[in-house]
Design a protein around this nucleic acid. Structure first.
Length: 294
DNA sequence: CGTATTTGACCAGCGC
DNA sequence: GCGCTGGTCAAATACG
C-alpha cells in the first residue's frame, strides 16, 4: 500500500519571528518501509477546512502535483551545495498517515501494556523485559505531522508536555534525534525531534498520533507567547492535529505530498531548497486560497 | 524524594 | 541468515 503517508508543506511569508520560521518538507516516516515515493503536492488551507477534514477527506492527490520526489530514495549522501534556507520564507511541513485515526488498536495496546504498568507479564527477560510480544502487532500506522522550524532550541514548546524516552544518532547527520512521548496519561502521541544537518538552525519535528486531551491549560499561555501573541483560535479540538491549532492557524497554506520516508528527507530538503533558491515555490504554488484577512 | 533525562541494550523491519 | 537502522525500553543518573 503505497504508504498513505501524507505530508504537508507549509509556506508563508517570513515572520521576523525568531521563534519559529523557515522549514522544509519532511517525511516523518521511519525507515525503509516505504520504497516508493510519490510526490504529489497538495495544498491545505486551514481557513477552508479543518486539518482533520483534510487528512481524512479527499484522498485525491490530483491537485497541484509537482514533479519532485519521484525516484526512490537511497539515502541522500551529504548535501552538495547547501545554502541555508532563505531567511525570507518559511516552510513547515507535516506528514500524516491517515488511516490510523482514532483507534489506536494494537499499538495503543502495546503502549498501554508497557505504560500502564509492568503488570507482571511474565517478563522472564533478564534486563529488558521489553516484553515486546513479537508478532502481537505490527507497526500501527499513526497520523504523522512533520514540520521544520527554524529554531535554536531543539525541543520547541508546543503547548503539550513531553517526556523524552530516547535518543539516537541520525545517519548522515551529526545531530541526534530525540524521541518524546506526551506525558498525559493514555495519550498515545509521540514526537521526534532532530536537527537538519543541512541547516543546523532548522529543527525537524515529527508528531505521531493524536492527542486525546486538550492542551494543558497552564501551558497554553506559553504557547501564545511562543507562537505569537494572538490566540486566534478556539480551544484545541480533540480531533485536531497533534499540535495546537494555534500554531496551525498561523499556517496559511500547507502543502502535502504523498509518500516518503525519513530517508527521503534530505532528498526533499534539497529539492525544496532548490525551489526556494530559485523562487520556484511561488510559481508552483499559486495562491489558490485568498490570503487570510487580518 | 518524586520526576525527568540519559544512555546502552534490545527488538523488529528491511535489504543484501 | 546477517547486518544495518530506527524505534523503544528501562536502569541509572540528574535535577527540582
Amino acid at each position: 500500500m503505497s504508504e498513505d503517508l501524507r505530508e504537508f508543506y507549509y509556506h508563508q511569508p517570513y515572520h521576523d519571528d525568531h521563534r519559529s520560521a523557515a522549514t522544509f518538507p519532511y517525511s516523518g516516516s521511519h525507515s525503509s518501509a516505504d520504497s516508493s515515493l510519490h510526490a504529489h503536492l497538495q495544498m491545505f488551507d486551514p481557513s477552508y477546512m479543518s486539518f482533520t477534514e483534510f487528512l481524512h477527506g479527499s484522498n485525491d492527490q490530483s491537485s497541484l502535483s509537482a514533479a519532485y520526489g519521484n525516484s526512490k530514495e537511497e539515502e541522500k549522501p551529504a548535501v552538495e551545495g547547501e545554502t541555508p534556507a532563505t531567511p525570507n520564507s518559511s516552510i513547515s511541513s507535516s506528514s500524516t498517515e491517515a488511516a490510523a485515526a482514532e483507534e489506536d488498536s494494537s499499538k495503543g495496546k502495546k503502549e498501554k501494556e508497557t505504560a500502564a504498568t509492568d503488570d507482571g507479564d511474565q517478563d522472564t527477560s533478564k534486563k529488558d523485559g521489553k516484553g515486546k510480544k513479537k508478532g502481537e502487532q505490527k507497526k500501527e500506522k499513526q497520523q504523522r505531522f512533520a514540520f521544520m522550524t527554524k529554531s535554536e532550541v531543539d525541543h520547541l514548546e508546543d503547548g503539550y508536555r513531553w517526556r523524552k524516552y530516547g535518543q539516537k544518532a541520525v545517519k548522515n547527520s551529526p545531530y541526534p534525534r530525540s524521541y518524546y512521548r506526551c506525558t498525559t496519561q493514555k495519550c498515545p502521541v509521540k514526537k521526534r525531534v532532530e536537527r537538519s544537518f543541512q541547516d543546523p538552525s532548522i529543527v525537524i519535528t515529527t508528531y505521531e498520533g493524536q492527542h486525546n486531551h486538550h492542551v494543558p491549560a497552564t501551558l497554553r499561555g506559553n504557547m501564545a507567547g511562543i507562537f505569537g501573541s494572538s490566540m486566534l483560535t478556539p480551544p484545541l479540538s480533540l480531533e485536531g492535529p497533534p499540535f495546537p491549532q494555534e500554531l496551525l492557524l498561523q499556517m496559511p497554506q500547507l502543502y502535502s505530498y504523498d509518500g516518503g520516508s525519513a530517508s527521503n528527507l534530505y532528498h526533499h530538503q534539497q529539492q525544496l531548497q532548490q525551489f526556494h533558491d530559485y523562487g520556484l515555490l511561488q510559481d508552483i504554488i499559486p495562491p489558490l486560497f485568498p490570503k487570510r484577512e487580518p
